[in-house]
Amino acid sequence: MTKPASFEDAGAVLDVSLSALKSNYRLLAKQAGAARCGASVKADAYGLGASSVAQALAEEGCRDFFLAHPSEAKRLVGLVPDDARLFVLNGLPKGTEALTADLPQLVPVLNSVAQAEAWAVESQRQGRALPAALHIDTGMSRLGLSAGEAMRLKQEGLLSRFDLQLVMSHLASAEDAGAVSNKRQLDAFIAIRVAFADVPASLANGSGVFLGAAYAFDLVRPGAALYGLNPQANTTNPMHQVVRLSAPVIQNRMVEAGASVGYNGIFTAPRAMPAATIAIGYGDGWLRRAGGLAGFFEGVRLPIIGRISMDTTVLDCSALGKRLLQPGDHVELLCESQTPDQVAAASGTIGYEILTAIGSRVRRNYVA
C-alpha cells in the first residue's frame, strides 16, 4: 500500500487513454471516407475533459469541434489550433452577438429565423461576413429551422450577409441501423441541400458514420463513439475502450450473518462475509441505480451490496477468499470487464449518461 500523493489521490480516478481516443478518431475518419472528421466535445467531452481531449484530437488533425454552449467553446480558444472551428450547437443566445463575433473561431449553429436575423445584423454592424452554420430540422423537432424557413431566408438574401460555412441536421435514431426514420431524414436533408449545394453539409454523428457513405456528406461529427461507446445497437463494439474508473478502499470489515448493509437495510448478509467500502457514490456520478453491478479487483468480480450512498459503495469481497482488500487498494468500476455500455444497460439508461454523470470530485488522469 502506498500513501496518497495528495488529497485528490485519495478519491476516485477516471483514467483516460489518449491513445485509445486517437485510435477511435482514426477509425471513424477512415469509416467516413472522403468526408472530414470532426469531434463533438460538448459537456466537457462527455465528462472526460474537453481541454485535454480536444488537444489530443487536434494532434490527429481534427479541426472541427462541436460544443453545446458558447461558454464551452470559449474555454477551448487558445488550446486548439488557430485554424480550428468551434461550432456552437445551441446557437446564438440572445444578446451575445457581439461577444460571439469577438471570438473568430466560434461558429454559431443558427437554429431559428430570429438567430439568423440577429447574426445578419451583427455582420452588418461589424462590417464583415461573420461565420455561421445553419441547422435544418429534418424530423427530430428539437432544434433547427424548417425547410420552408431556410428557403425563405435564402430567397430573401439574408443568408448571404454572413459566411455560411455549414448546413447540418441531426439524426434521431442513428444508433438503430434499421430505423425507418434514418432514410426519411436523409431524403429530407438531400432535398433541402439542393438549395445549398455550394455549402458543405453534415448529417452524421458517430452512429451515423456507420450507416453508409450516403450519410457522410462533407463532415461527420462523432461524439460518444470517440469515447468508446458502441455506435450501433446490438452489434460488436468496434471502438477501443477509452476510460477506466476506479475508487480506493477506505475501510474493510467482516459483515456478520444477518447484519444489514447500507441505507434501509435492503441487503442482509446470508452468511459472514468480508466487505470493503470504496470512496465513490452518486455524489461522484456513480449512479444509485447501479446497485446490481460490481467492482473488479485484479479481474475478480466483487458484487455491490446494499444501496449506493452519496460518497461510498460497499462490495462483497467473498470471491477473494482469504485475501482482504486494504485501504488504498483501487477497485475498478469501468473497465474491460464492465464497460460504460454494460453499466448503462444494467442501470436503465445509455452510456452517454454514465460518462457525463461522472462528477468533478473524480480526478481525471490522462494516459498517453
Rank of each mutant, 00 (worst) to 15 (best):
M1P: 11
A5S: 14
S6G: 09
E8D: 12
L14G: 03
D15G: 10
S17T: 04
S17L: 01
S19T: 07
A20F: 00
A20C: 03
L21P: 01
K22V: 00
N24M: 02
Y25M: 01
R26Q: 05
A34P: 01
A43C: 11
Q55E: 15
L57F: 04
E59R: 09
D64M: 10
F65I: 10
A68L: 15
H69F: 14
H69W: 13
P70V: 10
S71L: 15
E72Q: 12
A73L: 11
L76F: 10
P81L: 02
P81K: 06
V88F: 10
G91V: 13
G91A: 12
G95K: 03
G95L: 02
L99A: 15
T100R: 11
L103G: 00
Q105S: 08
Q105D: 03
V109M: 15
V113F: 12
A118Y: 07
V121F: 09
G127S: 07
A129L: 15
A132F: 09
H135C: 15
T138Y: 12
G139I: 04
M140T: 14
L145A: 13
S146G: 15
G148I: 13
M151S: 15
R152F: 09
L153G: 10
K154Q: 14
Q155P: 00
L159W: 06
R161A: 15
Q165E: 11
L166C: 11
L171K: 06
A172S: 08
A174C: 02
A177N: 08
G178R: 14
S181E: 14
Q185S: 07
A188L: 11
I190L: 15
R193M: 11
A197I: 05
L203R: 09
G208Q: 00
V209C: 01
L211D: 00
L211Y: 02
L211C: 04
Y215W: 05
R221F: 09
G223Y: 08
A225P: 01
A225S: 04
N230T: 07
T235E: 10
N237A: 07
M239D: 04
M239K: 00
R244G: 08
A247L: 06
V249K: 02
R253N: 12
V255K: 03
S260D: 05
Y263M: 13
N264F: 11
F267K: 04
A269G: 01
M273P: 03
A275R: 00
T277Q: 04
A279S: 03
I280K: 02
I280C: 05
Y282L: 06
D284N: 06
G292T: 08
G295L: 04
F296R: 03
V300L: 00
R301A: 08
I304R: 04
L315H: 00
D316N: 05
C317D: 05
R323C: 08
L325Y: 04
G328C: 06
D329R: 00
V331E: 01
V331C: 05
L334H: 03
E336P: 11
D341V: 04
D341F: 02
E353A: 14
S360D: 13
